[in-house]
Each structure stands twice: as C-alpha cells, then as structure tokens.
C-alpha cells in the first residue's frame, strides 16, 4: 500500500526489520539502559513513519538516530543530571562480577558520564566508524566540532583508562586486535 504515492508500508516494515536491532544497540549505548532505549526507539520509529514519505528515499536511519539523541538530551535535561549510562547498564552483577575487572565497565562508565552529544560523536565516529563529515552532517554541526568533541571524549576515556589496574590494562590490551 502506497503512502502518498511515495514510501510504502512494506518499505517501512523492511526498514524496521533490518535496522531495529542496530538502532536499539546504538540507543542502549546512548541511554545506558535498554528500557529507555526501547521506548525512545519506538517513539523514533513512530516519528519516522509519520515522515516516511519524505524519509524513505533519504536516510531514515540517520533520522531515527537523531530522534534517539534528542530523546537522550531531553532526558538528561529533565533530570538535570547527566545520564550515568554504565551505572544503570551494568547493574548486572552475575556477569559483571568477572567483567568488571577487565576495564570494559570503566570505559562505558566514562562514556555514560559524557554529555549525550559527545557520547553520540564517539559512538558514530568510533563505534559505527562513520567519517567525520558524515557525523557532522548527522548531528548538524561542523567537522571541526566533531573533531574537538571526539578528542575531548577520547581524553575522558583515556583518563578512565589510566585508572585501570596495570595488570588489567595489560590483559585487556592483548585482546585489542587492532591495536
């Protein structure tokens, strides 16, 4: 069934089926917990559907990511505190009893302590491996802003990394295949 003669319902279904998990994973890292991410993603998908006739030929995924970021920023603003993503994401002791010492938690805690937009820059640039120009386009800022935000974000991560036990850092760095 066509919608205004443009994007179709089937297209939207296919988009959700193929990209929902990836978007949800981005949301989980952005929000720090799956519940909020699912809610925000569902809302984002609704907004996307309303504009599907205009978005279907463009970049719906970027639009949904922008919705997630806006939701994260709104949430942070409402609470007047920065989302401590990892503090909520990693309240799962049965697993984290062993993983807490490998440095992963610390990195994600540092990520969660960043402002939402800086968090988004790090995720888009280094996790999703997007080019700086693409990140800038998606976030509606300049390439220079992306560079500076990424550098500051990395610095924050590095300061966390410096606090890790030496043995932990060594053992973890061995697993970093691209290092």
């Amino acid at each position: 069934m066509g919608i205004d003669g443009k994007g179709t319902s089937a297209d939207f279904d296919a988009f959700v089926a193929s990209r929902a998990t990836a978007l949800l994973r981005y949301g989980v890292l952005l929000f720090g917990n799956q519940g909020d991410a699912e809610d925000a993603l569902q809302d984002g998908l609704e907004k996307t559907w309303r504009r599907w006739d205009r978005l279907s030929g463009a970049a719906p995924e970027a639009y949904v990511r922008q919705c997630l970021l806006n939701a994260a920023r709104d949430s942070a603003r409402r609470r007047r505190v920065r989302l401590n993503a990892a503090a909520r994401l990693f309240t799962r002791p049965p697993e984290s009893v062993t993983t807490a010492v490998d440095g992963r938690d610390e990195l994600l805690q540092a990520l969660g302590a960043l402002p939402p937009r800086q968090r988004a820059v790090l995720l888009l640039r280094y996790w999703l491996d997007m080019a700086e120009a693409d990140v800038a386009r998606e976030l509606g800022c300049s390439v220079g802003t992306v560079k500076s935000q990424a550098a500051r974000g990395l610095a924050r991560l590095r300061s966390t990394d410096a606090r890790l036990p030496e043995a932990t850092a060594r053992s973890t760095s061995r697993t970093g295949e691209t290092a």
Partner: peptide, 9 residues
C-alpha cells in the same frame, strides 16, 4: 584506546 572502546561497545 579506540579499539578497546569499540570492543567494549
């Protein structure tokens, strides 16, 4: 650092 961050994500 980026590799570790990516792996953590």
């Amino acid at each position: 650092l980026i590799a570790r961050f990516r792996q953590a994500c």
